[in-house]
Write a protein that binds this DNA or RNA. Sequence first.
DNA 1: TATGACATGTAATCTGTTACATGATTAG
DNA 2: CTAATCATGTAACAGATTACATGTCATA
Lengths: 183, 183
Amino acid sequence: MSFQKIPSLGYALLGLLQPKPASGYDLRKIFASTSMKTYSDSPGAIYPALRRLEEQGLIRGAIEEGSGLRRRQIFRLSPKGLTELKHWIVRPVSREDVARNQAELMLRFAFSEPVVGAAASLQLLKSFEAALTPYVQALHEEAQGLKSAAPLSGRLAFEAGLRGTECLLQWTRFAIATYEKEK
Amino acid sequence: MSFQKIPSLGYALLGLLQPKPASGYDLRKIFASTSMKTYSDSPGAIYPALRRLEEQGLIRGAIEEGSGLRRRQIFRLSPKGLTELKHWIVRPVSREDVARNQAELMLRFAFSEPVVGAAASLQLLKSFEAALTPYVQALHEEAQGLKSAAPLSGRLAFEAGLRGTECLLQWTRFAIATYEKEK
DNA sequence: TATGACATGTAATCTGTTACATGATTAG
DNA sequence: CTAATCATGTAACAGATTACATGTCATA
């Protein structure tokens, strides 16, 4: 099943449509106004992405009737789309993801609770921690090798990356503690 | 001049070639092995990008003679390329950049010192601080509006973004202090 | 009646991903 | 002799950006 590759934007759309159906325009406004600014709010990205999701049967659009406004197509998640969203969220967390796709990992977690439940959200956090811990270690070691060779601005930039990752690890532990207190 | 738009990868290549000429393969290894993993090490990205830069006159390739190895093309930055790199580094820091292109900003800073000098590196850090301060403020306000409406995982994910940005601001201040101590 | 917000879309172009292809040299 | 590493590339395809095009409705 589902050999289709869905880009990050596609999952962002599925995740946003899960709690509440919305039109393309609604979704654009979310990307434009909230802090999901990493995604493009351009119509040339969103409308074609919605059409692709519809072709794959993951969402369904219905033209809104009644109101005098211009036709407005409201998209809602299909059962198949919900399944796909679940699979994406609980996908194993690779070391690659932690190094390259932190934003996507965070998006998976953000959507997780209503879709897969609090227990699975906690599991996801624990796999973040498991992947981040050795990664921070590796960055520390890389920093040793870099010492004094590179210009100061280069070393500081590396330090920024390291601090950011350590910060993320701390957040992960905080989030785990928060979820464990809930129970 | 220079109406050409150069993607992030192009600048990464220019920045790496500035201190030391290198072949496409050398550059791929840098992307694959060091923590510049945000960039692709795939030949299908790097070789065409190098060719484009060469067509724009920003780098020049020369086939290595002598050694018995297969031909190896060594690229070096041209004067025009150095100018372009300088312009990119000292470009004004917009609020957009801080929200969307943090990685690119950090790359600009990483390359800055040898290219535009320590004083300009410090200036760049100060414009990071100037842009980040109101952005952190805005995120805090957005967090208020979000409170208790969204699921816990969503709120925690937002918190991760906020913490990350605060962490970056702290680093910026630390880096400014480091540069000011140097003088 | 003119402006701006609502609402949707398309076309050209560029870039990156993936997968494949080639060939030389070195180590076992 | 064979595998691995060095080294460079191409071709098909998918997706994003940019810019443009279109049309409705409310309000000033």
